[in-house]
């Protein structure tokens, strides 16, 4: 009552307050009666869309699972992994590397689903046209990039950093072989822009983002283009924390998995969710699929 009074008073004084304090801010962990199932995501591709799609997904899961589902926005890879570790996020849409990092920090957590495209994911190396770098025919030709300036995306990105660095090392190119320090543009889109501008001669990013930007006509292909498409690897996936079993029952993980896999592109509302993820549908996955990523992560020091 006090609280309502106070807020009423303040609403009078502060027209700003009219936009009500959203439910996302008022998560009180005390009432464990209906403790919500908290999901989160690391924005990597279209974070803008990702935020909007999440309320739809949360609604869908709530209806399917019969427990309150809440979405926690986080914008930082490290923060998301940490929040997962301390148990404030129950299920997160992680990238390949961050998913592994998170699982290694929470015993018993599982990778349960991925998009159809994630089983066959690629990075693209792009170069500014003025550099005159010819398209590469195979991995070994990555050595052609020695002496160029180069940028990754975000430090923890699988497609924008981890796997490309792995492929470079396979070809015998170390980061010191590039001219100057290697950049970390912090996002796939920034990588495109910076290579298009010529700030960096070569960059690497998630193929899915590249394709959708080309389709949308956002890229001046006379200035920047793909020079190499990497081999396939596993990427994005859902990771769930085992603590949900204690809270909602032993089979809860299976329920969530089933709900995700059940998303049907033929149902308009569900199609929308899938489209926002850039997926045709979700498919099953398991921890062992990410062994390669874990190995690479250890090799380059992203996993200690």
């Amino acid at each position: 009552m006090k609280r309502t009074l106070l807020s009423a008073l303040l609403v009078l004084m502060l027209p700003l307050a009219a936009c009500s304090p959203g439910s996302e801010t008022a998560s009180s962990p005390q009432d464990s009666v209906a403790q919500p199932f908290v999901t989160g995501a690391i924005p990597d591709q279209d974070p803008e869309k990702l935020q909007r799609l999440y309320s739809k997904l949360a609604d869908y899961l709530e209806a399917e699972l019969g427990v309150p589902v809440e979405y926690q926005p986080v914008t930082d890879y490290t923060a998301a992994v940490t929040a997962f570790r301390v148990g404030d996020l129950d299920m997160v849409w992680f990238g390949g590397l961050t998913g592994v990092q998170a699982r290694l920090q929470v015993e018993g957590s599982e990778a349960i689903a991925q998009r159809d495209i994630d089983a066959d994911f690629h990075s693209v190396f792009i170069a500014n046209k003025n550099t005159g770098i010819a398209p590469l025919n195979d991995l070994n030709e990555l050595t052609n990039l020695k002496g160029r300036t180069f940028t990754f995306g975000s430090e923890s990105s699988t497609s924008g950093r981890l796997m490309p660095q792995y492929f470079l090392e396979q070809a015998g190119v170390s980061l010191e072989d590039f001219r100057g320090e290697v950049g970390f543009s912090q996002s796939h889109d920034a990588t495109i822009q910076l290579v298009e501008a010529g700030t960096y001669e070569v960059g690497v990013l998630n193929e899915q983002v590249w394709k959708s930007r080309v389709e949308a006509g956002d890229i001046d292909l006379s200035k920047v283009d793909v020079i190499w498409r990497s081999p396939a690897y596993f990427d994005y996936h859902w990771v769930i924390n085992p603590q949900v079993k204690e809270r909602y029952g032993e089979d809860f993980v299976e329920q969530v998995q089933a709900a995700l896999l059940k998303l049907d592109p033929n149902v308009p509302e569900q199609k929308e969710i899938l489209e926002l993820f850039g997926a045709n549908q979700f498919i099953e996955t398991e921890n062992s699929n990410y062994q390669q990523i874990e190995d690479v992560g250890r090799a380059i020091g992203k996993i200690q």
Partner: peptide, 16 residues
């Protein structure tokens, strides 16, 4: 974890 201008700026920045 609660929005705010910084959060929105980051989101819009990441997809430019």
């Amino acid at each position: 974890g609660a929005g705010g201008l910084g959060y929105q700026i980051l989101l819009s920045l990441q997809s430019l």
